[in-house]
Amino acid sequence: MLNFDWLAGVSQESAKIVFLVLFVLIGILVMLIPNEYAYEGVKKEDRHWWNNLKLWAIGVLAVLFLIYYIF
C-alpha cells in the first residue's frame, strides 16, 4: 500500500493527463482570486495590467503546462 500499488495500472499517458488537469485547475483557482487582492500594496493610480499578479501566475502556469505536454 505504501508504494501506491493500486495505481500501478495507470499508464504514463493517463498520469500525464492528471498532471495537465492539475495545472488547469490551479489556473482556474488563480483566475478566481479578486483583482483587489492581486494588486494589494499597489496604489490605485499605479495599477496596470502588467502588475496584475494573476496574469503573471497564469503566464508561468502556461509555460509549465507546455513543458509537461511536450515531455
Binding site: N3, L7, A8, Q12, F71
Partner: peptide, 8 residues
C-alpha cells in the same frame, strides 16, 4: 526523456 515515470 520522459518526465512522467511509471509508478513501477
Amino acid at each position: 526523456f520522459d518526465l512522467i515515470q511509471p509508478s513501477t
